[in-house]
Nucleic acid binder design. Structure first.
Length: 355
DNA sequence: TGTATTTGACCCTA
DNA sequence: TAGGGTCAAATACA
């Protein structure tokens, strides 16, 4: 099944690339005012390629991409109690279906993820002691290859009692030991936090992420209620910077006196982040983090196909997005960096995939 | 196959 | 006794 999925991915990529190339040719034809017949032929080829790609997606979804329970988990950050099926996730008598469920529970790559950088002061030198408004229980610590300091793993204290699947990883920065890099995964669904617990990202917002990341129009964001939903972030007593889990392009946010956040200078004036109004509150919900993390080098495909995005995170993002929308590209798991999309080629995520 | 992540058992502490 | 940290082992993933 794995091999079949890989083969389908390869075919899918080929079809999409072919479609893109044909679109490029069509553009050349348009520029040179070629005959209507040749352009019509190209259009037919393009449509054919994308139809094939969509067919591949549709047929492969039930097998390798369509794991509804996984999608639900990705949407809300709360897998549907995968561990409670047999009592123990390590049971060797798990049948195949349960094996799939267990896969969801183990490395929950689908969960939205973002990273805080917390500078520790004399007031809280102990790692992980900063108050981010939630109750955590440490469940592991591991030395990470190439890192000076071990990484600690925390999960929500109320995982079992309230089925809250939020986790975080805390690791001391190699460069600056006074900074702890805290990576959050999933959103809290428990009600024990010091702060109001944000509801899981709604499908509408997830859809918004997919289709509107290529806009740097602050007014548009506000009109859709996105900015107004910004929640005050972790209440940390320390100087704190927040960045996001697009490793190669982490954006820094320096906390200011009034507990708001401002760009730390990584981004230039053309960046989408500067289109947000200031003061900017700490990202607290994944969807907003991904908004902030959307790349300055925007291009097509809803603005998410940045060459700077690391592939795993990009796949995460896409999965998170699509899982909430029942889009045909659910769990699309191909190497996006193989696709060199023409900057002028406009994917209309909604229109394109809904036909 | 090596590494990262998660689990459950065990222990400590308030 | 409940809650949290430590640790070895299991497991997923690249």
């Amino acid at each position: 099944m794995e091999h079949r999925g890989n083969r389908e991915q390869g075919t899918l990529i080929s079809e999409l690339i072919q479609g893109m190339e044909l679109a490029k040719q069509l553009r050349v034809h348009l520029d040179t005012a070629s005959s209507a017949e040749s352009m019509d032929l190209l259009v037919q080829k393009i449509l054919s390629s994308y139809e094939k790609a969509l067919l591949i997606l549709q047929f492969s979804r039930p097998m390798s991409m369509g794991q509804p329970q996984q999608n639900v988990g990705a949407t809300s950050g709360v897998p549907e109690s995968p561990l409670s099926i047999n009592g123990s996730p390590r049971s060797d008598d798990l049948d195949k279906d349960n094996q799939d469920t267990r896969d969801v529970s183990k490395k929950r790559k689908m969960l939205p993820r973002w990273t805080d950088h917390v500078r520790v002061t004399s007031e809280n030198l102990l790692e992980g002691t900063h108050d981010d408004g939630y109750s955590w229980r440490k469940y592991g610590q591991e030395d990470i290859l190439g890192a000076k300091y071990p990484r600690s793993y925390y999960r929500c204290t109320y995982r079992h009692t309230q089925d809250c699947w939020a986790t975080k990883q805390v690791q001391k920065s190699d460069e600056d030991p006074t900074i702890f890099e805290i990576t959050y995964r999933g959103t809290h669904t428990c009600v024990h936090g010091n702060q109001p617990v944000p509801p899981p990202a709604s499908p509408e917002k997830q859809e918004y992420k997919l289709t509107n990341l290529n806009t740097n129009n602050n007014q548009q964001l506000q009109s859709q209620g996105i900015l107004s939903n910004l929640r005050k972030g972790p209440t940390v007593n320390t100087e704190m910077a927040t960045s996001f889990s697009f490793p190669s392009t982490s954006f820094g946010w320096l906390k200011t006196e009034n507990h708001s956040f401002s760009p730390s200078g990584v981004l230039d004036n053309n960046n989408i982040l500067n289109s947000f109004s200031s003061p900017f509150t700490s990202p607290a919900t994944p969807e907003l983090n991904y908004f902030s993390a959307s790349q300055p080098q925007m291009n097509s495909f809803g603005g998410m196909l940045s060459t700077q995005n690391s592939e795993p995170d990009l796949k995460e993002l896409i999965s998170a997005n699509t899982s909430a929308t029942n889009s045909p590209i659910i769990d699309l798991d191909f190497s996006l960096d193989q696709l060199e999309l023409d900057p002028n080629f406009q994917f209309d995520a909604q229109g394109f995939f809904s036909s």
